[in-house]
Amino acid sequence: MKIMVAIKRVVDYAVKIRVKPDKSGVETKNVKMSMNPFCEIALEEALRVRESGLASEVVAVSIGPVQFTETLRTGLAMGADRAIHVEAPENIYPLTIAKILKALVDIEKPGLLFLGKQAIDNDQNQTGQMVAGLLKWPQGTFASKVVLDKAKQVATVDREVDGGIETLCLDLPAVITTDLRLNQPRYATLPNIMKAKSKPIKKFTLQDLNVEIKSDLEVVEVTEPPKRKSGVILSSVDELIDKLKNEARVI
């Protein structure tokens, strides 16, 4: 079985972002970019499945401008066997990404598709569900544990839901999106980073895959959230209780 993993390049999670003065978006020039943390977890899980002997190959996929190949190199250095880069403009919406992924699944025929549950830039939490819907595959979203049964061709997935942990059983092939607690991603070692340079990255264009960009959404403006008024540092518990009672009136 082959596993496909979708990877996104985003502004590093530790960066304090700045909104552009013209309100057209968030400044991404000269800002540290990294692999989306949820995608790292998805890739790590795919690698673990391969290492346990249940999969033969891990293919990393990324969709975006040419810089996205750097993120694919990181994925290859972590241990992916090969990569696919689909050249596309930045900031296309999950529906188009899902259609591109479906086209790649039709070519590569993987038995599992792993994605992160959300990208930390747009916070949409949509792509995995959408590609599952387009493929008519079952979906295991927000996964915190994945157990594969090769004989029965099913995946048992623990999902992080509002009230606790829900367990589902999915027929393969399936789409799984990863939550933070699924695993601890590995670091790429220097020898593996060197090795990754010779691993293949296949290129596709949207025309090759016969996918058109669906643009039914338009960003009107991006603004900063309202600032909270600055607070006060108090000196004692008594003062705190007094403030909560008499100033804020919340207790």
Binding site: L95, G133, T141
Partner: peptide, 23 residues
């Protein structure tokens, strides 16, 4: 947009060929 809505809505949107808006 709890775990129920986030799980279902995007899948339904894909079936209808629509871009949904989260949260």
């Amino acid at each position: 947009s709890g775990s129920f809505g986030k799980n279902i809505l995007p899948r339904a949107a894909a079936l209808l060929d629509i871009s949904p808006i989260t949260d």
